[in-house]
């Protein structure tokens, strides 16, 4: 009897939990980036990543995110560049195959915009980062588009001859678009 009551109370409390969106819809999600080569913005993409996101649109500040990006899945749009950027001077993807972001706080910025603060680890180095994103409600799911900028040399991405920022700029914009559904 106690067990049935417990199960029932669990069921009844379910609506409160159900406000959380936490199942990533990978087909609709993307992680892209824009680098600047010889002053020209060039778009690229990471084809493989996973994101563990929990977000209640009524309480976004309680949201959490952990995002892992498979660096070897990079597509710069150019075969020669794809082969180059996994090498030790760039990502050193053999030694550090994954870049990860772990959120520490989410704060509203007004007008539907939010800042996610967190730790970004690439190539064995962890730095504080801040990404700005929107929350767009769609039937049964949330669309979370956002972006942040990083300085690649902070993480020694493209060292040696590539530290020449007149060819490839230091600043890289990362754009993400995560779609999460209710579990």
């Amino acid at each position: 009897m106690r067990i049935i009551l417990l199960a029932l109370s669990c069921l009844l409390s379910q609506p409160a939990l159900a406000a959380n969106y936490s199942t990533l819809v990978p087909q609709q999600s993307s992680v892209t980036f824009v680098s600047t080569q010889m002053g020209v913005p060039v778009e690229g993409e990471f084809r493989k990543f996973n994101a563990t996101i929990t977000l209640d649109p009524d309480h976004p500040e309680r949201g959490t995110a952990r995002i892992n990006i498979d660096l070897a899945s990079i597509d710069t749009g150019n075969q020669e560049a794809n082969e180059e950027v996994v090498k030790p001077l760039w990502f050193d993807a053999a030694a550090h195959p994954v870049a990860s972001f772990t959120s520490t706080a989410v704060k509203p910025l007004g007008q539907g915009r939010y800042a996610a603060f967190g730790k970004l680890t690439i190539k064995g180095k962890t730095l504080d980062t801040q990404a700005v994103f929107n929350i767009e409600k769609q039937p049964g799911q949330l669309l979370l588009p956002g972006s942040f900028k990083l300085k690649r040399l902070d993480y020694a991405i493209g060292s040696g001859i590539w530290s020449d920022t007149s060819a490839v700029a230091d600043e890289v914009q990362i754009r993400f678009r995560f779609v999460v559904a209710k579990p």
Binding site: Q37, M38, G39, V40, V42, E43, G77, N78
Partner: peptide
């Protein structure tokens, strides 16, 4: 088509008449 816009002398961008298509 290769996704790399032409910007003449780094100043004058030529419009991309084609989308990216490998």
């Amino acid at each position: 088509a290769k996704g790399f816009q032409t910007v003449w002398f780094g100043v004058l961008p030529l419009p991309d008449l084609l989308g990216k298509n490998k």
